[in-house]
Computed example of a mutant assay.
Amino acid sequence: MDHHSSHFTQAFIHLDRLTHNMRLLQGLVGIRPLWPAIKANAYGHGAQIVGRHLVGLGYKTFCVAHVSEAIDLADAGLKATFIVLSATLPENSPYLVAYPCEPVVCTVEMVESLAGEAARTGKTISAHLKIDTGMGRVGIHPDAVADFLERCRNYPNVSIKGMMSHFPMADEADKSFSQQQIAQFHRTREVARSYGIRTFHFANSAAIFDLPDAHSDAVRPGISVYGLKPSHVMSNPQVDALQPVLEWKTRITFLKEVPAGTGLSYGHAFRTDRPSLIATIPLGYGDGMSRLLSNKLELLIGGVRCPQVGRICMDQCLVDVTALRGRVKLGDSVVIVGRQGREEITVDDLAQQLGTINYEIVTNIAGRVPRIPVGPSMAGASTESVGDDGTLKTLTER
């Protein structure tokens, strides 16, 4: 018996939809390799579940944000190469060399540190040079590429395998700035090729759909892997064929009748205006549901949209189910994200109400919420879930 599944608030990960999205993306880029981003716990979907399924589909290179993410996945048995996207410091060089990582570099100091650790352990390590074409976070200026690569020749234990950049505005309707970035990247590519670099990658999810000139030699899909749109102004209609991978559900744990004028939850920010039937559900900001959605959220119960009432607490919140009186009972399913009957609540619905983006909603789902794989798995993980510690737990078939 797995105690992690005892938390009734759970995220269900539809592996067949994940497969569909990967096939859709692969069709857009042809034979170019996809290097899916599974950072931030696979955008909240469960990195081990997603990673194992994608390995089963034949994908062997993944993008993570930090070396700690690569270590966790490698130690869990995921046989893959991890491109570590975020800038780091020399103190992490031992980890990067010891594990199957290809770090992104943009300082000679980091290259020197990696070379020293690789030489000490009798290894070589591949890395990717990041150039800043307009994102403004990390990366060297394109004009500095020749000098940088010239200096890297002093460190034969480090092979600069690829050159990359990133888009800040590829998901916007106006593609003019992104086109300027592509042109600059292509010019710089010719310089890098003279130093032996043969792999160039730039395209994120938005660029995969809308900017084919940026596909280069490999692409790095992120949010689209999980069936969510990079934005709602994409020009390629195929973005509408993406299938959301995640459903988020919970169950009713308590029901009570209250009279009109009853204050509910902290601060009594909500008072009933009629005799009401109120349900308690084990969903709170400790599970990743923003407290800012208090008295704004709707949930699906019995195929009916029911309003959340009162302030959302850390571990619980309240739902007005008066409309379901006589038809609702303890243990009934509550859909937070997903479809029930003819109604559907999407991640984008929550994001719009919160004034944020869909990325934030799914990545904020807390670690204590079990991720339950659903559907056929190419990696034999269909009876596993991820617990609080990020490790896979075997579940009984249900």
Rank of each mutant, 00 (worst) to 15 (best):
M1S: 11
D2H: 05
H3A: 12
S5N: 10
F8M: 15
T9M: 14
T9E: 10
Q10I: 10
N21E: 02
L24I: 08
Q26L: 04
G27T: 10
I31A: 15
P33T: 11
A40S: 15
N41I: 09
A42C: 11
A42Y: 07
G44M: 05
G46E: 02
G51K: 06
G51C: 08
L54R: 04
L57T: 05
V64K: 00
A65Y: 13
V67C: 06
A70E: 02
L73Q: 08
L73N: 01
G77K: 05
L78I: 13
L78F: 05
A80D: 05
L85W: 10
P90M: 02
N92P: 01
P94N: 05
P94E: 02
C106H: 13
E109F: 08
S113I: 06
R120E: 13
G122T: 12
G122V: 12
S126V: 00
L129I: 00
D143E: 13
D143A: 11
A144L: 10
D147E: 15
F148W: 02
Y155W: 09
N157K: 02
S159G: 06
H166Y: 06
F167A: 03
A170N: 05
E172G: 12
I182N: 01
F185D: 00
R193G: 01
G196K: 00
T199N: 05
A203H: 00
S205V: 10
I208P: 00
L211A: 03
D213R: 08
A214E: 01
A218Y: 00
V219M: 03
S224E: 07
G227A: 07
L228E: 10
L228A: 08
K229Q: 15
S231P: 07
M234T: 06
S235V: 12
S235Q: 13
S235I: 12
D240L: 09
P244G: 04
E247G: 02
T250R: 01
I252G: 01
F254R: 14
L255D: 03
K256T: 12
P259C: 14
A260C: 08
G263F: 11
G263D: 12
G267K: 09
G267S: 11
H268R: 14
A269M: 13
S276G: 07
L277Q: 06
T280H: 03
I281M: 03
M289T: 09
L292D: 15
L297Y: 08
L299M: 14
L299H: 02
G302A: 12
G302M: 11
G303M: 12
P307Q: 08
C313T: 09
M314Y: 11
D315G: 08
D315I: 03
Q316R: 10
V319D: 00
T322H: 03
T322G: 05
R327P: 00
S333C: 11
V335S: 05
V335W: 02
V335D: 01
I336F: 09
V337W: 02
E343R: 14
E343F: 05
L350T: 03
L354V: 09
G355P: 13
E360V: 08
V369K: 02
V369F: 04
V374K: 10
G375Y: 09
S377I: 13
T383D: 13
V386S: 07
D388E: 09
D389T: 14
G390D: 04
T396G: 04
T396S: 12
